[in-house]
Design a protein around this nucleic acid. Sequence first.
DNA 1: TATTGTTATACTCTATAACTATA
DNA 2: TATAGTTATAGAGTATAACAATA
Lengths: 159, 159
Amino acid sequence: MPSPDERVAALDQILELAVLVNADMAAGLAERGLTEARTHLVWVLRQQGPCTQRDLATALRVSPRNVTGLVDALVATGFVTRQPHPTDRRATLVQLTDHGATVAAALDADHQEFARLLFADMPGTTFAGFTDGLGAVLDRMRGLVAESRPRPEEEPADA
Amino acid sequence: MPSPDERVAALDQILELAVLVNADMAAGLAERGLTEARTHLVWVLRQQGPCTQRDLATALRVSPRNVTGLVDALVATGFVTRQPHPTDRRATLVQLTDHGATVAAALDADHQEFARLLFADMPGTTFAGFTDGLGAVLDRMRGLVAESRPRPEEEPADA
DNA sequence: TATTGTTATACTCTATAACTATA
DNA sequence: TATAGTTATAGAGTATAACAATA
């Protein structure tokens, strides 16, 4: 059983890692003309194809108003377009431009390269021990979140 | 040697854990009337005692203007006070109120309790394997950041 | 002349509420 | 009546630039 101090130290390391990884990713996104929130939207479009803004609001767990702003910005910077919905004249379909799709693919490549760098030279046994513990911690964390979040009222359809 | 796919999966788990931990902490802070940025400032005051706003800007790596806003908000909500600096009439000393100090101590206790919960029931060997790998990943990440960030504080030798 | 903190301005992300057009 | 997306308004965090008071 780890001591309380060891646990706090491990948590502090997780937090430091989270801060560093996050800052690094944000810097990479900025070079490509994206922010985190806009990238999240681009990522949903890459995975799901053209979406209504309503779909995007649901997927991003954000207000419809916020989606309007994000899409405005992504249209202005050439990452996405708004198209009329074929059957519902209230709705708009948001889809990636060629540029948006190209950048999204580059982000994917960056992600893989980053994973390679992060674990470069790590022995297989160390890696295995790390991922074992990481999986356990992640499961625990998911459980804690589920406990403290009292029913989002719907099925969280994860995609 | 881990495969590329295994590495990406591990990175994805790190990112998911970061998101969950961050959201959980933000929720806890909100219950205490704090945001992340304001908490960061409170934390510096807890560790270093009364500071000038200039000191805070440096510690938080944020613009002086931003500190003005954060301190305004923390004064309005009763966490800190502005005092005249004893020797430099340009400067103000920001210090925790009793309430601010009490909440900061409670956050510290929360932190320890959270660490306990996160690793509850984890066998010592699993924990040890996890922290070994985590330490290695964190070192690697610090190295990557140091590489990509071209010298703060010192003169940029070239470019 | 340099430093401290401010006002002025602006951008991003976020929210709710009210409204329009459509279903 | 309900839904999709907008305008209006607001607040938080962030930045630069110009300026006052002080060093």
